[in-house]
Computed example of a mutant assay.
Amino acid sequence: MKQPTGSDDDVARELLQSVVATAQAIFGAEASSIFLLDEAADELVFEAVSGQGEEFLVGTRFPAGRGIAGWVATSGEPVIVDDLTRNGSFARDLAESTRYVPDALMAVPLVHGSRVLGVLEVLDPVPQSRSSLGELDLLALFARQAAVALRVVLDRRDAGTPRLGGQGRAESLRMVEALRELLLEAR
Score class of each variant (00 low, 15 high):
107 A>F: 03
91 A>R: 02
79 V>C: 10
107 A>H: 01
69 A>P: 00
100 Y>F: 15
90 F>R: 02
72 V>Q: 06
82 D>Y: 07
69 A>H: 00
79 V>E: 14
96 E>A: 13
106 M>H: 02
91 A>T: 08
82 D>P: 07
102 P>M: 09
106 M>W: 04
84 L>C: 10
68 I>G: 10
88 G>D: 13
87 N>W: 04
73 A>N: 06
88 G>Y: 06
102 P>A: 11
100 Y>W: 12
84 L>M: 09
75 S>A: 15
70 G>S: 04
85 T>C: 15
68 I>N: 10
82 D>G: 11
95 A>P: 02
84 L>A: 09
107 A>Q: 03
73 A>M: 05
93 D>K: 06
84 L>D: 06
81 V>T: 05
77 E>Q: 14
72 V>P: 01
76 G>R: 01
105 L>S: 00
88 G>C: 04
68 I>T: 04
79 V>M: 14
84 L>H: 06
108 V>C: 06
70 G>A: 05
102 P>F: 08
66 R>D: 12
105 L>E: 01
99 R>M: 15
83 D>F: 09
78 P>R: 11
101 V>F: 05
71 W>T: 06
69 A>G: 03
83 D>L: 11
83 D>C: 11
74 T>F: 09
106 M>Y: 04
67 G>E: 05
82 D>R: 08
69 A>K: 00
97 S>R: 12
100 Y>Q: 09
76 G>C: 10
72 V>S: 05
75 S>H: 14
67 G>H: 05
90 F>Y: 09
74 T>E: 12
80 I>R: 12
87 N>S: 12
70 G>Q: 02
93 D>N: 04
96 E>M: 10
74 T>L: 08
80 I>H: 13
108 V>M: 07
80 I>E: 12
89 S>H: 13
79 V>W: 12
103 D>Y: 05
79 V>Y: 13
93 D>G: 02
84 L>F: 08
71 W>C: 04
82 D>I: 00
75 S>K: 14
75 S>Y: 13
89 S>I: 07
78 P>E: 14
70 G>V: 00
85 T>S: 15
97 S>P: 07
